[in-house]
């Protein structure tokens, strides 16, 4: 327990590993592992789209989520919605009117914090695809254990015993909150404290993004 409290103070996140351009055929793709949780995202677009779903002033964003079993469920639709709304705020869709941008996310391993991993992977894939964006975003999750401690980036076991789980997404400009997705019961003060901790932890995700882009921009002359 002592070690874990130490981690929270230093805002240590699970080790992140990433490969961009993982898929050769899609316009942009990224595979990201956060600890043992792994997600793969691919971005295609701006593409042609049929009349009824195209918008004359902005590009339509479509998010497809494939779980490991392959069977679509209501929970997956819900995740798609969260990811879509988060990405819509980030993408400058008015630059690509009458087109569609498709994001496909494949679950590979889920050992806790999967939604935030999906969001981070989607962001990296969008960065790789070269779609114009207003800002990048970073998702950080945390859990509230039964003693009221806030655990950043909880593991599977911690999630099973947790009273509440919270996911926050921040933009890179002012670190303002883009998406907040919570489950369970907690007080307002706890929410504020969790928000503040996740906001400071999002710096680590942003610097990770910068490292990845630095690594890839060296080879692209």
């Amino acid at each position: 327990m002592g070690a874990e409290e130490q981690n929270i103070k230093e805002f240590k996140l699970k080790p992140m590993k990433c490969e961009l351009n993982f898929l050769s055929k899609s316009d942009g793709s990224a595979i990201l592992s956060q600890g043992e949780t792994v997600a793969l995202a691919s971005v295609n677009g701006p593409l042609d789209v049929k009349m009824q779903s195209q918008s004359i002033e902005k590009s339509t964003l479509e998010v497809l989520f494939c779980s490991k079993g392959g069977k679509p469920s209501v929970g997956d639709r819900y995740k798609e919605n969260i990811i879509r709304q988060t990405c819509e705020t980030a993408i400058l869709s008015s630059l690509y009117p009458r087109t569609a941008i498709t994001i496909t996310i494949q679950e590979l391993e889920d050992y806790g914090g999967f939604l935030s991993c999906c969001l981070n992977t989607a962001c990296l894939a969008l960065v790789n695809s070269g779609v114009a964006m207003r800002h990048v975003f970073a998702a950080v999750s945390c859990a509230l254990d039964d003693r009221g401690n806030i655990l950043l980036e909880p593991t599977q076991q911690q999630l099973e015993t947790a009273r509440a789980t919270m996911n926050f997404v921040f933009d890179s400009r002012q670190k303002s909150l883009v998406t907040s997705f919570t489950e369970g019961a907690f007080s307002e003060d706890t929410y504020k404290e969790a928000l503040a901790r996740c906001r400071s932890a999002s710096d680590l995700v942003f610097s990770f993004y910068r490292d990845i882009v630095t690594k890839y921009s060296k080879v692209i002359g």
Binding site: N21, D27, G45, P46, N128, S129, G130, Y216, S217, I220
Partner: peptide, 9 residues
């Protein structure tokens, strides 16, 4: 900005 891109605009 020199960026990586595959889709043509």
């Amino acid at each position: 900005v020199d960026s990586y891109q595959k889709r043509y605009v």
